[in-house]
Design a protein around this nucleic acid. Structure first.
Lengths: 186, 186
DNA sequence: AACTCCCTACCGAACGTTCGGTTGTGTTAT
DNA sequence: ATAACACAACCGAACGTTCGGTAGGGAGTT
């Protein structure tokens, strides 16, 4: 039983029941172990949660920051970042859902350790938009708020998206991009 | 101690700790009662949760549907609905946060009773956008998805908004409206 | 006024259950 | 032999819920 498998299964349980609603026995059941055995791999339930959050954020940070560093037009960059973000979200729905919805279940001290990466991630989007404004391709009075609006609509996707649904992730990404860039008005 | 005060206080605790993370004693403490006394007003913890969700949704549904029925231009209607939605969210942050983030903690049967109102609420937004498309003022290939995108960014606001922050709710509503209608591109 | 009766609101104590976590002992693979 | 891994059994604490009972105020009767 690898650490990654345990993390993945725990994320699945946490996503389904919430952190406090899920017991160590619930997690153990998924991986066919007794709950005592989990303590051979992790020191506490909180450590599992932290590892899920760190891992999920790392996935998102790595791949989107690589795009953010590219030297391409601001609107094209945003399109690519949106697509990549949604892709990772869809490919790691359990991890991502826990990252987005169980953050507050992390106790103070662990949360303090995790938060800097979160801020760094948000600034990635803020900077991408601000860059477009500076270059004269975007008009936007408050890039920080536009970034949060965009992140909000993308994050919320996880509450309704299903791989079995009619729309593929890349189709959703295109819709989001067009909506964000061109708006609703004719 | 009125039922409304209890609901409000319970929402505050649920928002802070999550449904499963909050104990009946936590709630009782806020209203200066013993936990046993709560069972004079409610039959169970689940009933409290359901009542919070119903109440929050009712607030949102009543006021936004009144706007949706008005005979005004599609873009103006959307602006008003966005403003009203965010207003109610901000004025009832505890109730709203529980509605948005603790939905899944509601057990099956109670959830089944609550869900129809949710669907009705979402269709309100979908119809508002579809109406604009039909009248030729919006261009949008998938109104249902645009509605979910909009709801996503508005809902996410509750994760970062603070009444003490720099931006007022109506300023945020204007930003969201402009972004949604005109887009980011110059 | 004095009395009984009832009702709402509340509480202390305890119930059975489940929780996260520990301990000690086996089993397996190197 | 040794280290890694898994297990059964167990612990104290906390959980949601129940129960018997108390305090106090209003209504109705005498």
């Amino acid at each position: 039983m690898t650490r990654d498998e345990l993390i993945e299964s725990a994320a699945q349980v946490f996503r389904q029941k919430g952190y406090h609603g899920a017991s160590m026995e619930d997690i153990a059941e998924v991986v066919n172990l007794r709950k005592a055995s989990l303590y051979h791999h992790f020191s506490s339930k909180q450590e599992i949660l932290l590892e899920i959050l760190d891992r999920a954020l790392q996935l998102l940070l790595e791949e989107t920051s690589a795009i953010a560093e590219q030297d391409i037009s601001a609107d094209e960059k945003l399109r690519l970042m949106i697509r990549k973000y949604l892709q990772i979200l869809a490919e790691n729905m359990d991890l991502a859902a826990v990252l987005l919805f169980e953050y507050r279940s992390l106790e103070r001290r662990r949360r303090a350790r995790h938060t800097p990466s979160r801020d760094k991630f948000e600034s990635l989007w803020r900077d991408a938009i601000a860059e477009g404004v500076k270059k004269g391709v975007f008009k936007c009075s408050d890039p920080a708020m536009a970034a949060r609006a965009l992140l909000g609509q993308m994050n919320w996707t996880i509450t309704w998206y299903s791989p079995a649904g009619a729309k593929s992730i890349s189709a959703i990404a295109d819709d989001y991009s067009n909506l964000l860039l061109h708006g609703l008005l004719k």
